[in-house]
Nucleic acid binder design. Structure first.
Length: 462
RNA sequence: GGCCCCAUCGUCUAACGGUUAGGACGCCAGAUUUUCAAUCUGGCAAUCAGGGUUCGAUUCCCUGUGGGGUCACCA
């Protein structure tokens, strides 16, 4: 069987989008599963919008997720010679031609055609210009573009692995532009040439490329090769059912990294947006994904990005982490750290491991460990029917218990309701409505600090 | 507007043409509990509409509706 070659071909024109990750993940999984080759190709033919910083972010992001490529990164900006050669060949063979129409003329045509309800395509004005005229215009230095000579009224058909047969009449696409000049080729052309030259067997990409596919097939065929297989992934939508955008939520991977999502959770979540193994298992490592992946099980309909499920998954992966590893991951998020030893931080983080959904939450949850003095309303110390007088008595009692190293729980159980002891203690130690268990906190905070905070609480209600 | 794609709980989804339409997230209730989580138990909740084909349609076909994509000298 032919060796499988897939590619991920992003444009470095902005932050790494969460939807883009999926168009990287699926061809990656497919190629690794089939022991194929996965190529990273940077499509940076748009010199205005392509930036090195975006490429760096892209590569960093893929590394963070654990998506590894076998070949590349290849940059289209470095492949100009190849494109020039191919475009010349197309012109020589009569598959492409110079067009001298101005942008304005073409735009006006398009508007007109749309207004009368027809496909807005180029009218072929320069399609059959006599050679002498072309030479004359070129000599005069008249601005031009190069258009592909699309066959008239022909059905281009391909069998999409995910969607089945897709047919397009060439009349709906017309003679599209493939290059501004020999050194400035456009997307459909460079993409087709590269897929062909790199011997890509499976093009797996977003469904926004479906309309481009027949154009690319035409180009590849005109260059004398057979087109690859195509698989078009549905898009990821925001909660407003529109293409995921900044308006409806965070879209770039860096935002999610900053919030403290784990790569395992992002990967697991993204993989299950539009794919599932057909079983009820849904917690998957990369290894397992590779093992169970198949293009046939990919969903045709678009999926809405549901942050609640990601949060749940992330919490799950956080709970599975080794505590020391989790602590190290949390440290960058804790703003109050001075020179506390790692083992102390480990104790703090372990108090919150099962309460954490995102690493970024650790700061607010544990800030009381890093403050000298807590500020809170004295009402916070009140538990159910207690009066301030009751609270004061409770706190004084706990003070005595801790001072004399007595068992806190045992003492609390002597009360009619142990909340009478435990709630004011918790509030005094943390200054918060919700927290980890007070006895655990005393153990981490230490006797001296705990006593100090209880004393401060007693002062507060005086 | 032309062309193309899509359609099962709120969301992600399962169901060789025959299932009480299953699971997960979320939500609600209960258990546990000093709070919040975590955990466990239970509950609510879906086949877009109308026509066919068939003994039987979530599943196949047609039409409609809805949503999305695309129509660049962007990718």
């Amino acid at each position: 069987m032919k060796k499988i070659i897939t590619r991920f071909a992003p444009s470095p024109t902005g932050p790494l989008h969460i939807g883009t990750i999926r168009t990287a993940l699926f061809p990656y999984l497919f190629s690794v599963k089939n022991k194929g080759t996965f190529i990273l190709r940077i499509e940076d033919t748009d010199k205005e919008r392509s930036k090195k910083e975006w490429e760096d972010e892209l590569i960093k992001g893929l590394g963070w997720l654990g998506i590894k490529w076998d070949e590349g990164p290849f940059r289209q900006s470095e492949r100009g010679d190849l494109y020039e050669e191919k475009i010349k060949k197309l012109i020589e063979d009569g598959h492409a031609y110079y067009c001298f129409c101005t942008k304005e003329e073409v735009e006006a045509q398009k508007q007109y055609l749309m207004s009368i309800g027809e496909s807005p395509v180029y009218n072929g004005h320069c399609r059959d210009l006599p050679k002498e005229t072309v030479d004359k215009y070129l000599k005069e230095g008249k601005p031009y573009v190069i258009r592909f000579k699309t066959p008239v009224n022909k059905i281009i058909s391909f069998n999409d692995i995910i969607r089945g047969k897709i047919e397009t009449n060439t009349n709906t696409m017309g003679d599209f532009v493939i290059a501004k000049d020999f050194r400035n080729c456009l997307f459909n052309f460079t993409c087709a040439v590269d897929d062909m030259e790199m011997k890509v067997t499976h093009v797996i990409r977003g469904e926004d490329h479906i309309p481009n596919t027949p154009k690319q097939i035409l180009i590849i065929n005109a260059l004398g090769e057979k087109e690859p297989e195509y698989a078009h992934l549905s898009l990821i939508l925001g909660t407003d059912k529109k293409k995921l955008s900044k308006r409806t939520g965070k879209t770039s991977l860096s935002d999610y990294i900053r919030d403290g999502y784990l790569p395992e959770a992002i990967l697991n979540f993204i993989a299950f947006l539009g794919w599932n193994p057909g079983t009820e298992k849904e917690i998957y490592t990369m290894e397992e994904l590779i093992n169970d992946f198949s293009l046939e099980k990919i969903q045709k309909s678009p999926a809405i990005f549901n942050i609640d499920k990601l949060d749940w998954l992330n919490g799950l992966y956080i709970r599975k982490m080794q505590i020391e590893e989790l602590t190290k991951a949390c440290i960058p998020y804790i703003t109050g750290i001075k020179d506390e030893p790692l083992e102390y931080l480990v104790k703090i983080v372990s108090l919150y491991q099962e309460r954490l959904k995102k690493l970024s939450e650790i700061n607010e949850l544990t800030d009381y460990f890093f403050k000298d003095k807590l500020t809170y309303e004295k009402e916070l110390l009140l538990w159910k029917e207690m009066s301030f007088e009751d609270v004061k008595k409770s706190l004084e009692k706990i003070y005595d218990v801790i001072l004399n190293d007595k068992d806190i729980l045992e003492e609390a159980n002597k009360e009619t309701n142990r909340g009478n002891i435990l709630w004011p203690l918790r509030a005094a130690l943390t200054g918060k409505k919700n927290s980890a268990g007070p006895i655990d906190i005393v153990n981490v905070l230490g006797k001296e600090k705990s006593l100090k905070r209880i004393k401060e609480a007693i002062e507060l209600i005086k």
